[in-house]
Amino acid sequence: MRFERREHRSTLLVIATPILAVVAALAIAGVLIALAGAPVFQAYWKILTSAFGSRLSATETLTRASPLILTGLAAAVAFRARLWNIGGEGQFYLGAIAASAASVHLFAGLPSLLQIPLLFAVGAVAGMVLLLVPLSLRLRFSVDEVVTTLLLNFVALLFVSMLIDGVLKDPAAFGWPQSEAVDAAARLPKLLARSRLHIGLGIAVVIAFLIYFVQTRTVFGVQSRAAGLNPSGAVFAGVPLGRTLVIVAMISGGLAGLAGTIEVLGVKGYVTTDLSPGYGYSGIVVAMLANLNPLGVVLAALFTATMFVGADGMSRSMGIPTYIADVTVALSLLSMLVAVFFTQYRIRR
């Protein structure tokens, strides 16, 4: 048995790939649910109804999808240029803490229309800075950025934990380590009344379209793709590799920082060390599920959010550990990798 590269890929195959991958992941996760002694189809139905069965649950799922779109885009943009930014989680937290501190100590009292964009910028810059450190280590010392970005996640979380237990601690929080609540004018407007859903969702979707446009219609889009496909070839063709990677890193880190900013301004209003249930890491899965396509990221984020919100509800009523959502999401990443492989290769005997 050997593999042979396919001459051309049909559009149908490309569209069917993520669907097949998700079905395969759900099937394997179904075995795990069955082993736990629960009826599989009922469990999946419960996941679906818990994620979309009511107005409350549907808005909750969309609220969860918003940061995932942004962290997914952060990963997708970087991976396309083969910049392995696995530090989305750290950049998310740094963006969140920078924006909330800026709102409390710098921009308090400014009107929303001015304050919110300023805070977005602050949060994005914080995320950028955290990614530029590993990038410069790569460019200067040829250090693999996978490990450094992963390690910086721990550093960033400890840094945030230190700040909210120290200088940024809310004195009115009965000793709990959390940051002071942001200015009322900094809170994002709601998309729907009587829900947690805020305009972050709209912002995330607009950004996805913007990135799609940049990647398909601009010189920079081609350059970043070339930097990923074949770095030495790209240099030969006149692509400024270092500069392209720096810009990619700024976009990627900026998006992850923005995700944290939007989460803190949109949902809670203050930072704790459980602000993110792993949005940064899930963003990697979202990006891969979307095959790094920015528009696909929106759908993949929606799927991932559905699994997380749905599994919470299913877990409560059927006694299956909520971790089944993480298992399914991880499995869909692995099966997506295999599925993409088979769109590129066919088996020959």
């Binding site: 795990l32 890491y281 990697i284 899965v285 891969m288 550990p321 971790y323 089944i324 993480d326 298992v327 999401v329 991880a330 499995l331 990443l333 692995l334 990798l337």
Partner: peptide, 12 residues
């Protein structure tokens, strides 16, 4: 992917 799967499977 293996890390995400192995750790979530372990927790499950």
């Amino acid at each position: 992917g293996v890390t995400l799967f192995a750790s979530s499977f372990a927790y499950y």
